[in-house]
Amino acid sequence: MSRADTFHWFARLLHWLMAAMILSMLFIGAGMVTSVESKYLWLVSIHKPLGIAVFVLALIRLGFRLTHPAPPLPADMPLWQKLAAHASHWLLYALMIGLPLIGWAMLSAGNYPVTLGGGLRLPPIVPADALLFAWLREAHRYLAWLFFLTFLAHMGAALMHGLIRRDGVLQSMTGGRRPERSDIA
């Protein structure tokens, strides 16, 4: 069931699953780096495997997106809004893939073992280099903030489509019924 005005069910599944995972990641990340309590170790042990899971799903999602075009935006949307929508979506893709990669590279540069729990360990992807670690660690922080800000804009815009414009854009991802349009046949 993939109508042309709605995202494919697989794209919607990935979107909502990853939305929950990414929001958890952002909150876990912000919480753990400001915690000295015992939950710190627990949060770090979730952050790493969850980040790698986001990375893998993001690659699958990117591949699916490139082969299954998104439903077109409403024709009457102002150009700047269309441009902002496209730019923010590609920025979100870049961050979904880039942020976990930077995290992985950052641990590699710090010469930390990249443990995912259950005895699973990833190989380093950059050489051990403390200066590179510092740059990657700072990049990880600032890009995470950018990710959260982009999420806020994305959520605000989605709600604006759903509550103010009522143009079917929000429904293209929720999969709900289009709003009643009996008066404009």
Binding site: D5, G168, R181, D183
Partner: peptide
């Protein structure tokens, strides 16, 4: 398929 556009009602 109906083309998406803004609901004209306020």
């Amino acid at each position: 398929m109906t083309e998406k556009r803004q609901d004209p009602r306020p």
